[in-house]
């Protein structure tokens, strides 16, 4: 479980997060949504340990965030960043294998041979056929799959996704989130995802946290959170909310004012 109490953070004299509290239970999938500059990515960096809060408490599994060593944290928390991996000369297999770094000594050895794990995850992410391809020869969508395979190989208990579907076409977006969701259920891990697309967030997440100007504006199940009034208030966009004909979750239809 991850618990944040009254977290505040300022960067360059500007308040980015103020008085943010949340509780993410083990095994759940949580979405953080909100407009640009709301502090969503900053909140993720707090949990990932790459930023420190000025005030408030943050604990992972009951242990304050500041007490985790870098390497222990990397065995517990993995982060899938937006934009994916830069095109370099390493092969898919080598990059995915880097996910084992937190378990290795400086020689690159670990107790159990990670090869079966790596092979299984390459299979899951549909990368088996590309294993020996250099990643600078892959498309953006394929590279993002490599990035996902790498964080899976890291075997985290908590997976943080920072707008993982940016720059992906809708086919790849669904494929990526489906893989994450399936793997999350299978392993019983916790997923916290910053998502731009409210419709995808409503479909995949158990709970949503709406961040606006560094504050939590609303939180709860997608049914409780996603409504036209909130979208107007937070994004300044007018919309109609309908039920998904198959799954029944709320879905947003944007409503243009230009035609009126």
């Amino acid at each position: 479980m991850i618990e944040g109490k009254a977290l505040s953070l300022s960067l360059d004299g500007k308040r980015v997060l103020s008085d943010v509290s949340f509780r993410f239970h083990a095994g759940g999938m949580y979405g953080i949504i909100g407009p640009n500059g709301a502090g969503k990515s900053t909140l993720l960096s707090l949990i990932a340990g790459t930023a420190r809060a000025d005030a408030g408490q943050l604990a992972l599994d009951g242990k304050p965030a500041g007490e985790w060593t870098r390497k222990a944290l990397a065995r517990h928390v993995a982060v899938l960043q937006q934009g994916g991996l830069s095109p370099v000369g390493f092969t898919v297999k080598e990059v995915v294998g880097m996910g084992r770094f937190p378990y290795q000594n400086w020689m690159g050895e670990e107790n159990a041979d990670p090869a079966p794990l790596i092979a299984r995850i390459l299979e899951l992410t549909g990368l088996s056929g590309l294993a020996d391809r250099q990643i600078d020869r892959l498309s953006g969508g394929e590279r993002q799959r490599v990035a996902l395979a790498k964080v899976m190989v890291q075997e985290p208990r908590l997976l943080l996704l920072d707008e993982p579907t940016t720059y992906l076409d809708i086919g790849y977006q669904l494929q990526l989130l489906d893989t994450v969701k399936q793997w999350q259920r299978e392993q019983g891990i916790t997923v916290v995802a910053v998502l731009h697309d409210l419709n995808l967030a409503a479909q995949y997440c158990d709970q949503l946290f709406v961040l606006c100007n560094g504050r939590i504006e609303a939180s709860g199940t997608p049914e409780a959170v996603v409504n036209a009034e909130l979208v107007e208030r937070v994004y300044g966009a007018s919309s109609v909310v309908v039920r998904h004909p198959v799954s029944g979750v709320p879905q947003l239809l944007l409503h243009s004012r230009a035609g009126e």
């Binding site: 790459t50 870098r70 944290l73 990397a74 982060v79 830069s86 370099v88």
Partner: peptide, 23 residues
């Protein structure tokens, strides 16, 4: 040589390296 593996992980950026457990 001891830092060689860490340097490999730097290719994707510092934040990335730190997520993998590098100081």
């Amino acid at each position: 040589i001891r830092y060689a593996m860490a340097l490999n992980l730097f290719v994707f950026g510092e934040r990335h390296a730190s997520h993998l457990g590098i100081e």
